[in-house]
Design a protein around this nucleic acid. Structure first.
Length: 674
DNA sequence: CGCAAACTAAACAGAT
DNA sequence: TATCTGTTTAGTTTGC
């Protein structure tokens, strides 16, 4: 009885209602028959990014123009252009790219929010979404701050050390400077973009062909040339100040050729530029060390100098350091850059703050008490307090699990969101919500990449993971050193990895057992101390193909992924590497989606694809792979042991969503299993 | 609508 | 005996 899961059931559906657009379909390619998603838009994620970058460049150019104008007065000649398109520098005009003009960037203005609210009464899920976003924003803010601090530190160091370093070619510096601006602006924009994408993903924000809402506004609007000019002035002043102050310290600096211990640098040396994506530090890893810069020197990664505008490659960190000292000595430009960046960041923060306030107000208005007044990164908890009239259903209990809300349909998201999900930082909450029972097969893909990446999320959020039990069990087993686990260990894995499984133990444990027995891919092996379960990968893979061939949509997805996947991921990787912003790449927010995508693609290719459509009929018993090892459970004739196909779609967007937290059931939660 | 897959519940049996 | 582990069956939900 308790289960009554019944909960909602209903709703679901309407994934597409709001104008969600299908990213995939559109732009990227015209798949033979693209999916059904008719609709709307098609702004491929990649396009979005490009667009933004383009805009960012434009903005940067404008800024540069301003600066140059000023500089020119001082030093008439300066030349050389950066790689960027010509001319930009000389012309005074601040041309705004058409694209920018068209976009009329706007963020989610209060009005927009209102619209959303009005359109559909804010459903609990939506609220959750909002809350999550808010959290995300806060996180981002924090990261920004960190980043900023680092930059400052760095700057300071450089100032001290290199004050004396001769002034090298101005031109070089100028170039670097320009690029630096561009990159930094882009970085900031990306931040916003993330936010936006998240919103879009949630369906709260819809992008339509005609009207594209892009985050740029903050830059284009927030930072108008005039402001920048002002900034520049400030900067120059500061620089002077610095230089004067530096003089006083200079003696010290000179004495020490190498920067006084810069922890950062030292550490980096060890990593030697290796840029590790901490986003998911898989296993061991210390808890959150992502803060520690040692992970990645902001200016050095992948053996490349990350100094804006500089892409020099270095073998070792030492070389890089030299380069840094020589080529990027601290001077006006560097200082200026930082200053500008500061401003930009501030602008963004303001923006974020505003949105945050809005959210708060909204929530308050809706009687939702958010626990998160403070920007604590605590993921997912906010929601907990939502006071919904709903009674917590035994099953999904979380307050949120509410039944239906059109917006965050179980069915995960519209195509659009799916597409985006691939690109956006998954970490942020996929909207889960309601999905009560099962998520479409699409989510059954091999979760490994995904699960790992969202690990923290699932560990803390009582969100039902969008994977089938079979997938989860497989994951648990594969993660174990021996690739085998006892039933109890599997249980433990579930509870450890998913907050969701800290409750209703009887139910899901039963399901686990059921799955173990039912699916051929799980092989029971007698062991000294009992029995352990292993995974017959072949069997597991076997099932996937069926689904694919079966559903056009899935097929299409895969095809898309395959077709563009590589390109996309490559592009992303490049782009990420390029602007790799510690902010984004690092932390919990992680943007692993790209990796996820890549991994997913890889997996799919390996598995599913090869079987391809081959058999739609079913598992051919005959050819069943040799029993890999262990004895296979003898199942003479199982009626329907056909395993389910895990569909492999790589949509990364499961929709987990925010967490409800544990406060709820904590009490009963884990104990049962433990 | 039918089918297949997944989920939930539960009965049942053997092992501890 | 109680609990755990495994197997099965049945009913429901969901997506295609």
């Amino acid at each position: 009885m308790m289960q009554e899961s019944g909960t909602e059931a209903t709703s679901n559906g309407p994934a597409n209602q709001n104008g969600a657009a299908s990213v995939e379909g559109g732009a990227r390619d015209a798949r033979p028959r693209s999916v059904t998603t008719p609709s709307t838009v098609d702004i491929a994620a990649a396009d979005l990014i490009h667009l933004q970058q383009h805009q960012a460049l434009q903005v940067a150019r404008q800024i540069l123009l301003q600066q140059q104008q000023q500089q020119q007065q001082l030093q008439p000649h300066q030349g050389t252009g950066l790689k960027s398109p010509k001319g930009s520098e000389k012309q005074p005009s601040l041309q705004v790219p058409v694209s920018v003009a068209m976009m009329t960037p706007q963020v989610i203005t209060p009005q927009r929010m209102q619209q959303i609210l009005q359109q559909q009464v804010l459903s609990p899920q939506q609220l959750q979404v909002l809350l999550q976003q808010q959290q995300a924003l806060m996180l981002q803010q924090q990261q920004l701050q960190e980043f900023y601090k680092k930059q400052q530190e760095q700057l300071h160091l450089q100032l001290l050390q290199q004050q004396h370093a001769g002034t090298q070619s101005k031109e070089q510096q100028q170039q670097a400077q320009r690029l630096a601006f561009q990159q930094q602006l882009m970085q900031v924009q990306q931040l916003q973009q993330q936010h936006l994408l998240n919103l879009q993903r949630q369906g709260l924000l819809t992008i339509q062909p005609g009207q594209t809402t892009l985050p740029l506004h903050s830059l284009t609007q927030g930072m108008i040339p005039a402001e920048l000019q002002q900034l520049w002035k400030e900067v120059t002043n500061v620089k002077e100040e610095n230089s004067s102050s530096n003089n006083s310290h200079r003696g010290l600096d000179l004495s020490s050729p190498q920067p006084p211990k810069n922890p950062l640098l030292n550490q980096h040396a060890s990593t030697n530029g290796q840029y590790m994506s901490h986003s998911l530090k898989r296993e061991g890893s210390t808890v959150d060390d992502h803060h520690h810069s040692h992970h990645s020197h902001p200016l050095y990664g992948h053996g490349v100098c990350k100094w804006p505008g500089c892409e020099a490659v270095f073998e070792d960190f030492q070389s890089f350091l030299k380069h840094l000292n020589n080529e990027h000595a601290l001077d006006d430009r560097s200082t200026a850059q930082c200053r500008v960046q500061m401003q930009v960041v501030q602008q963004l923060e303001l923006q974020l703050a505003k949105d945050k306030e809005r959210l708060q107000a909204m929530m308050t208005h809706l009687h939702v008490k958010s626990t998160e007044p403070k920007p604590a990164p605590q993921p997912l908890n906010l929601v907990s307090n939502v006071t919904l009239s709903k009674t917590a259903p035994p099953e999904a209990s979380p307050p949120l699990s509410l039944p239906q809300t059109p917006t965050t349909p179980t069915a995960p998201l519209t195509p659009l969101s799916q597409a985006y999900s691939v690109i956006t930082p998954n970490s942020l909450h996929h909207s889960v919500g309601p999905m009560r029972r099962r998520y479409s097969d699409k989510y059954n893909m091999p979760i490994s990449p995904d699960i790992v990446q969202n690990k923290e999320f699932y560990m803390n959020a009582e969100v039902r993971p969008p994977f089938t039990y079979a997938s989860l069990i497989r994951q648990a087993i594969l993660e174990s050193p021996e690739k085998q686990l006892t039933l109890n260990e599997i249980y433990n894995w579930f509870t450890r990895m998913f907050a969701y499984f800290r409750r209703n133990a009887a139910t899901w444990k039963n399901a686990v057992r059921h799955n173990l027995s039912l699916h051929k891919c799980f092989v029971r092996v007698e062991n000294v101390k009992g029995a352990v379960w292993t995974v017959d990968e072949l069997e597991f893979q076997k099932r996937r193909p069926q689904k694919i061939s079966g559903s056009p949509a899935l097929v299409k997805n895969i095809q898309t992924s395959l077709g563009y996947g590589p390109a996309l991921s490559a592009a992303f990787q490049a782009s990420m590497a390029e602007n790799n912003i510690p902010l984004y790449t690092t932390a919990s927010i992680g943007s692993p989606t790209l990796n996820s995508l890549a991994n997913a693609i890889r997996e799919e290719m390996n598995g599913a694809m090869d079987h391809g459509n081959s058999n739609g009929s079913d598992s051919s018993p005959g050819r069943s792979p040799l029993p890999a090892m262990h004895h296979i459970k003898e199942e003479p004739l199982d009626p329907e042991d056909h395993e389910g196909p895990l569909s492999l779609v790589m949509t990364a967007n499961h929709s987990p969503d925010f967490g409800h937290h544990r406060d709820y059931d904590d009490d009963q939660g884990h104990d049962d299993m433990l």
